[in-house]
Simulated scan of single mutants.
Amino acid sequence: MRVEIWSDIACPWCYVGKARFEKALRAFAHRGEVEVVHRSFELDPGRAKGDVEPVITMLTRKYGMSEAQAEAGEDNLGAQAAAEGLLYRTRGRDHGSTFDMHRLLHFAREQGRQEELLDLLYRANFAEERSVFDDDERLVELAGEAGLDTDAARTVLDDPEAYAAEVRDDEREAAQLGARGVPFFVLDRTYGVSGAQPVEVFAQALTQAWGERTPVRLIEGGEAEACGPDGCAVPQS
């Protein structure tokens, strides 16, 4: 079974939701047969790379809330993150474009290191003092920590077209699936779960999606040559 997760590194509920989903997955009887794929979604698409501002400033400007309201919201998120065992800095974080991070995550997926890089990006953004925005060398360092070749990661970041189409494809697909926000979880292209739901909701979704998988129905057409574990059938003359 495949679970696809649309998320953004700048999204605190994606950070919390990933931890909750993983708790449900660890307790799932068929966890070894579940493939998790992370998809790209930008909360602030089109934002210029150098356009970086404090999170509190962004919240007051974008949502029209007071500074006190923005700080209270960050405090609540910090408490929610702590409940999942996550570190979260409620003050002093930055907000900016995540497009390059998503491009790098697509590169990491090709190398089989997507999960490792995503966790490091989340940790760097939400728990550490050094900003991950508009700092290619910081992203290269994180790529190295994730087990990626740093020169190759730098090459990706230096080319603005590298994996750009893959990011845009993910975002178009999210829109087609009806995702209006993130995190957005899609189980076997049959069930969708929106938001950082409680662990119990993810557990129920996994169980239901697994139980309702439809076996492949073969069309009757007789035997024909095919390839299998023992090789390929060779027609006899």
Score class of each variant (00 low, 15 high):
G147N: 08
L105C: 13
L139A: 08
R47G: 00
Y163H: 11
P12M: 09
A72F: 04
P235W: 04
V37D: 13
S97V: 02
L121P: 06
D119Y: 06
G211N: 14
E115R: 15
G195D: 03
D170V: 01
A124E: 09
A205L: 08
E53P: 00
R109K: 15
T190P: 00
Y15A: 01
L142D: 08
C14M: 05
V186A: 06
A152G: 08
R189I: 00
G181P: 03
R172H: 10
Y163M: 03
D169T: 03
G112I: 03
R154G: 15
P235F: 02
G32R: 15
Q176Y: 06
K62G: 00
G17W: 08
E116N: 10
F133P: 01
F41P: 00
P54L: 00
Q197G: 02
R189P: 00
G17K: 11
A224W: 14
Y63G: 04
W6C: 02
L25Q: 11
A153K: 11
T207A: 15
Q208S: 01
P45E: 02
E129G: 00
D8L: 07
Q114R: 14
A203F: 10
A83D: 12
E161K: 09
T57F: 00
T150N: 03
L139N: 10
V140C: 07
A143L: 06
R26K: 15
T207R: 14
E161R: 10
D170H: 06
A70S: 10
L218R: 10
V182M: 11
R217P: 02
M101W: 04
N76Y: 15
E129T: 13
T190K: 15
I219A: 13
D230L: 15
A179G: 04
P198M: 10
S237M: 00
A164S: 12
R93A: 05
P198K: 06
E53R: 08
I56S: 12
A81D: 09
L59F: 10
H106I: 02
F185H: 06
G144Y: 00
A164P: 03
L118N: 12
L77R: 12
V201L: 07
H106R: 09
H102V: 09
R189F: 01
F133L: 01
P229D: 13
L87F: 02
A72I: 06
T98D: 01
G211S: 11
A68K: 12
E171P: 07
A27Q: 15
R47Y: 05
F126I: 07
R109N: 12
E42D: 02
R113P: 09
W13H: 08
F126C: 03
G112W: 10
A179C: 01
F184P: 01
E74K: 11
E22P: 06
R103F: 12
T57D: 14
E137G: 03
D51C: 04
D136P: 07
C14L: 04
G78L: 10
V37Q: 13
